[in-house]
């Protein structure tokens, strides 16, 4: 079944969705909550939903702050899919195309910067930045069970 609710959310057999929003930080919470609701519908455990929701928030915030340098009117295309218990999140931007994994992140929690990227690395199995001709595609994925169990891992 394919449906397109008023919210702009596209649902395909309850396993994936896609939505494009502007880079306004006010969109962070609504998008996170929509993805979390989708993951709940797809059967992901609460702890996994919380971790994926946090990673989505951090990835979107990094796009707003770094790829778009705070501009609030640029597009961010968010995708989410669950297949065989595996969660995949994609974020496409049309920003400066810089790969944050080559410049950011640190292991000192008291040093500013990189907290969000470190969250992605610690909670996700896969964090892949794929440069595009006009921006960046970020792919995050984790097994639903690992998403739920990875908070205490390094």
């Amino acid at each position: 079944m394919v449906g397109r609710p008023k919210s702009g959310l596209t649902v395909s057999a309850m396993v994936s969705f896609e939505k494009t929003v502007s880079s306004d930080p006010a969109n962070l919470a609504p998008v996170r909550k929509e993805v979390e609701a989708f993951l709940a519908t797809a059967g992901i455990a609460d702890a996994g939903i919380a971790n994926v929701g946090l990673c989505l928030n951090e990835a979107m915030a990094n796009i707003i702050r770094h790829a778009y340098r705070g501009a609030e009117d640029r597009p961010i295309k968010v995708g989410a899919a669950v297949e065989n218990g595996r969660v995949t999140i994609t974020l496409r931007d049309w920003g400066n195309g810089r790969d944050p994994s080559t410049c950011c992140g640190n292991n000192d929690p008291l040093t500013p910067g990189g907290l969000g990227l470190n969250c992605l690395r610690r909670l996700m199995d896969e964090v892949t930045f794929t440069p595009q001709p006009d921006g960046m595609l970020l792919t995050l994925s984790c097994n639903g069970a690992r998403c739920a169990a990875s908070t205490n891992q390094s």
Binding site: A50, N51, L54, N107, P109, L110, L115, N118, C119, R122, L123, T151, N152
Partner: peptide
């Protein structure tokens, strides 16, 4: 709350 505690743990701020 649990999600706040989880963030502090993953950001390694829980002991600070």
């Amino acid at each position: 709350q649990p999600r706040v505690k989880g963030l502090l743990e993953v950001a390694r701020l829980g002991t600070i």
